[in-house]
Design a protein around this nucleic acid. Sequence first.
DNA 1: TTGTAGGCGTTATCAC
DNA 2: GTGATAACGCCTACAA
Lengths: 342, 342
Amino acid sequence: MARVTVKTLADELGISVSTVSNAYNRPDQLSARLRERVLSKADELGYAGPDAAARALRSGRAEAVGVLLTERLSYAFSDPYAIGFLTALSEVVEQHHVSIVLMPLSLDGDDLDLTAVRRANIDALTTLGLADNHPAIQVAKARGVRLVYSDVGEDPESTWVAIDDAGGGRQLGSHLRSLGHENVAVVVDTNRPAGSEARELTDDQIGFVDYASRFRGLRETLNRRLRLVSAGHNAIASGRSAGSWLLRRSDRPTAIVALSDVLALGVLDAARDLGLDVPRDLSVCGFDDIPAANPAGLTTVRQPIRDRGRRVAELLINPDAPDRQMLLPIELIIRSSTGPAL
Amino acid sequence: MARVTVKTLADELGISVSTVSNAYNRPDQLSARLRERVLSKADELGYAGPDAAARALRSGRAEAVGVLLTERLSYAFSDPYAIGFLTALSEVVEQHHVSIVLMPLSLDGDDLDLTAVRRANIDALTTLGLADNHPAIQVAKARGVRLVYSDVGEDPESTWVAIDDAGGGRQLGSHLRSLGHENVAVVVDTNRPAGSEARELTDDQIGFVDYASRFRGLRETLNRRLRLVSAGHNAIASGRSAGSWLLRRSDRPTAIVALSDVLALGVLDAARDLGLDVPRDLSVCGFDDIPAANPAGLTTVRQPIRDRGRRVAELLINPDAPDRQMLLPIELIIRSSTGPAL
DNA sequence: TTGTAGGCGTTATCAC
DNA sequence: GTGATAACGCCTACAA
């Protein structure tokens, strides 16, 4: 038995396919009684409404928005920062019957696989933690997918909701500087597989992550007192091993800035492992102000990530929303993990 | 200027559209050189590959799998159990370039809105925390979406990965019974908006949640010693208010079983608020064994949720995978939150 | 290895 | 309020 389509229904009822279509999409275009007939016939024949793919093709709308998360998709769910973003985003999105499409950005060996981005059925796309010039974004743009960027852009026509990461870096840098720190290390997630060795990086090796501006802010304030070190990916264990690597060196830093709180928590673990007192022997700070930062006494830069999530969602859903470019302010939260340099 | 399609490319190159299509989908069907020409021309004209909607319509595959999460989508991200499931699921899914579609199940007043489920472009669907007879699942089934159910099913043809919730309920029930508890209350998430009053329920009011079998297991073992109480939705605050409501009553129970650890943590809070000692004055237990259960000393039923996530993902991606019906065992974890009844 | 042709199921446009 | 018809962009037999 053949598949039930609008045509089946139309034939069965002796009406035209457009009327059937209207019964679903424009209830005001036909009498309530006829609509009732259509719907009940549909029920009877087991027709569950217009086919999603056909509808998407014809109407040009998928009723879904895409979110691209740093690194492999599976990592994102263990990142409180990503979770905060997704929660806020979904609160808005779900009021519009729109679905969220999460695309993996799998790394095949060393180069990443963009197939999922290329194939996804979405109307608009945003990202978390990816630099706006990331290849995946280029692909989506070429596909004609509407983009909500995550960083300040030049183009007055582009849509973005950014957080003032550079400002956060500067504030944190000033804080450390005023505490007398002259030897500061920055730990950054470089999207490497777990277990990668920590190593020193040059400024331009920071990669396609949007933390780049956090680092830039730090560099501006701390200047030559700074070195950059890679962690594997954004996980406590990575922060711990990078911290451990740094703290065992003879030129041990007096302060470590992790570019995310998750990494910072790992650095705190590393310090504890080595019997170092924080903040006496070492100052540690992070970025994000995730829920776990407070109990850990972590000095950090609070990101209005939920605000951003909400705002991004509005722009994903409605391309014509006002305020299509917005820079959200950060806030330096000083807790007990930073203190004067020895 | 018109949109670039396979036809544009074909005309431009003086070849046929099928060859262009093959360049993307069947590299082995044309010479490497020709393929190169196609791809570079595509680049030149700004063609980003086959249109997702058209491809989905024509091929019948969306390269995406859907996940339906209890309650409103936004709640799910704060549920450690859901996060564990999603993490495991995505680990598998991302190796196949398949996207995950998260559909909201918004409640409009009292009846829920299935629009998103109806419109989503997906090949297969699974759920977490929804009973298999939930209306959303009916809709998806009628649409012809392949389903991976979450509970044991009658149909030998159906695909499911279940966790032995009833067994878990029975084990927990026996445990409490052997401790002498005669007055036990069960707290269940009923998907009500936050702030709903706790109230007593009859067994059949438990609703479209799959925790029903957890409760059934408890009922089998504890029989008449049991009453059922509603919490708002799955959140610590809901558990706390339900717990508080129960513990202030004159017929205060000697043990409270929450059907999720998240709710149980709230019950513990309520006990603490009232100055009750756990487990001396009150035994508390949960279900799931989320990460926070261990530090809280919570007796609970461990769910192999990550195993389930992986297994479900495999079945979502490959309909012909073997072992299309699987019941995963649970494990009773006894910690310090349960003790003898007074 | 490449080309031809038909149709996937729907919605938009316009006529009635 | 309702109907006819033409796309939407692509994939896949099948033929060459």
